[in-house]
Design a protein around this nucleic acid. Structure first.
Length: 355
DNA sequence: AACATTTGACCGTG
DNA sequence: CACGGTCAAATGTT
């Protein structure tokens, strides 16, 4: 175990060093006339890859060191690796809720984790941040102390397939472009372990309704004209945004975005599927739809805590760059996750989306 | 017509 | 009793 950590630490340092080196190289390529776009893009990809690996390791390692190995199905406290934005209630509550065996109207026993999603203006409404799942909004609530209401979403297949996955989306008080997406429960619907092809033709046993929805979401959102950079946060333990701008604090990840700079509806930040479907698919074997739709991506469960509970911080930015970053949505990751005892089917997808 | 979203009411928890 | 999560009728959208 310790040895494993040491090993990971070395790799971690190595990856970070590599990232630094690559960044330097990239700097040399800044002169437009001295390098091609491809070369620069390649460097960016490599850099991101390095950082992602490092981050993934760091995250796993952090948990390994701070907490007992999650060996049981239910783990508590998806401690925010990165204390997110304005509130920390989520993590605190999580413990209780997860431990609770009662499935009351508001308490769930499902695994739960949170993500920070930064959506550049406009990207939200388009619902580009699609995690491949179909969500249906079932409520919105004004939360005490929060400037913005919280939206409640459940899996569209709740009735047709009994999928109990839900998520809550709330815009950050400090940074309006940041959304906290709190996922609860793993998908047990077909999407959880999507058929190899997530093409529009998943008309199998889906109810007519689900089909409708999924297609709608998958086909409309993609707007292949953008690229977004997600940075996976490193500042895990950094105090929350007391400084305000999470942009400066949180790490990010990178993934293609499809939004096109529309404006976010201020009066209803949750309309449609704005932050919809963000990765975090705790679904078993979720893979981003192979359909090369650029807006599908999965965030690596970098901060996985256990049993599908992890904390993630994702940001999207750079809405405006055009690019054809449609890398394979799913990448293999070679970090050791042996000691993580998550659900048998926990998705470990797209760890290096942009690698 | 079918399905999604909105929104006020209801209910459980602390 | 206040707050947060869910329900369900009304309404909007495709």
């Amino acid at each position: 175990m310790e040895r494993s950590l040491e090993w990971e630490q070395k790799i971690l340092v190595s990856e970070l060093a590599q990232g630094k080196e690559l960044a330097k190289q990239l700097g040399n390529h800044l002169n437009p006339s001295s390098s091609s776009l491809e070369a620069r893009q390649s460097l960016v990809d490599k850099i991101l890859s390095s950082y992602e690996k490092a981050l993934s390791m760091l995250n796993c390692g952090a948990f390994a060191a701070d907490q007992p190995k999650p060996t049981t199905g239910i783990t508590k406290s998806p401690h925010s690796f990165i204390n997110s934005s304005s509130r920390s209630e989520v993590s605190d509550q999580d413990c209780k809720e997860e431990l609770s065996s009662d499935v009351s109207r508001k308490r769930k026993t499902q695994p739960r984790w949170t993500e920070q999603v930064k959506a550049c203006s406009g990207n939200g409404l388009e619902g580009p941040l699609d995690d491949g799942y179909c969500w249906r909004k079932y409520g919105q609530k004004v939360i005490l102390g929060a400037k913005f209401p919280r939206g409640y979403y459940r899996c569209t297949h709740r009735h047709s397939q009994g999928c109990l996955a839900t998520k809550q989306v709330q815009r950050s008080d400090e940074n309006h472009s940041v959304f906290e997406v709190n996922y609860q429960g793993r998908h047990t619907c077909s999407q959880a372990s999507p058929p190899p092809v997530a093409s529009p033709s998943l008309n199998n046993d889906f109810s007519k309704r689900s089909k409708y929805l999924c297609q709608q979401q998958r086909e409309e959102k993609p707007k292949p004209s953008k690229e977004i950079f997600l940075h996976v946060g490193l500042d895990c333990n950094r105090a929350r945004n007391d400084s305000g701008s999470m942009d400066d604090i949180f790490p990010s990840f990178s993934f293609p975005c499809t939004s096109s700079g529309n404006e976010i509806e201020e009066n209803n930040i949750f309309t449609g599927s704005m932050v919809e479907n963000f990765p975090g698919s705790c679904s078993p074997t979720f893979k981003s739809p192979a359909t090369s739709e650029s807006n599908y991506f999965s965030v690596s469960p970098s901060h996985m805590n256990s049993f599908g509970t992890f904390y993630q911080n994702v940001k999207t930015r750079g809405c405006g760059l055009t690019n054809s970053v449609t890398h394979s949505p799913t990448r293999d990751l070679d970090i050791s996750i042996d000691d993580v005892d998550f659900d048998t089917t926990f998705p470990f997808d797209n760890l290096e989306f942009l690698a």
